[in-house]
Structure formats: C-alpha cells, structure tokens
Amino acid sequence: MADEKRLSLNRREFFGHLAVGWSLFAAATGGLLALVFRFTFPNVNFEPTMSFTAGLPSDYEKGVDERWKNAYGVWIVKHEGILFALSNICTHLGCVPNWLPGEQKFKCPCHGSGYYVTGVNYEGPAPRPLERFKIVLNSEGKIFVDKTKIYRAEKGEWNNSDSFITV
C-alpha cells in the first residue's frame, strides 16, 4: 500500500526531533530562570533612608514622640533633661513594641517584653535595652538622627555624647 505509514524514524530524523525537543526544553528552562532572576529586582524597594532631620528640639514635648515611628522606626524621647532617638525594634526577636502612654512603657506584642520610657527592659524575655541611635544638632540647630550608628546600653555606650542631646 502506498500510503502505509512508516512507524520508525531513521537516524537523521531522530536527531532532528531530538534537537527540536532539547532546544524547546532549554528555552523553557532559560525563560523560567530569567523570570526567577527578575525577582531579584523588585518593582518596589522598601529602603528607608538611614538618616533624617527631625526639627528643632523645642518641637518636642516631654515624653515619647511617635511622629517618626512609621517613617523611620524611631521614637524621639525627651526625658529627664535629655533627648534621644530610640529604636523601635524589640531586642528579643525584633517585633515592634507599642508605646502605652497610660502605663508609661513600651510593650512588645509578640512575647510581652516591656521597656521603661528610657528604653531599659524590665519585664518579659528581652535580654537588653532598646538601642539608641546617633542624635546630634546640625548647623541650623535642628536635630539630626543617624540610624547607622547604634548605641547599646549594656556596652555602656549611652554615655557617649552623640547618643543624646541635652535640652
């Protein structure tokens, strides 16, 4: 019969099919990998700037000021004649504590660590006080907070003159 189909491939055809198959496979894999690679360049990059000017010292009332908390993760605290910038990262496992004005303390919602207004831990599992950031007055007399420089109480760094402003 003339139109009887051949049921096997010859060598040349076989390699032809093989080449097409592998090329498609390689292209698909390459495309997927490209997609994965694309993920390393996010559309939106959340990288808040590490330093900011925070107005005049006279802008702040006594106590804890939350105006920079959402933008920079910093509380500006005026307490006993000094002004300092307190980090809002819990030293236990890095949650964000809340300032409870009624009880005059920072309280972490994750495992219940509590801190005094100074940032010193006193309840719950937090092993050390909240960190303070570098805070200085710039040439215009405004507050400048630099989050790249950290002062830790347990290392005795809170005495450093850059860690607070006397008001």
Partner: peptide, 8 residues
C-alpha cells in the same frame, strides 16, 4: 515593617 499586630 514599623507596625506589628497586637497580639502578634
């Protein structure tokens, strides 16, 4: 990143 639910 600057806010945690309560309780988290």
């Amino acid at each position: 990143p600057t806010w945690a639910p309560n309780p988290a």
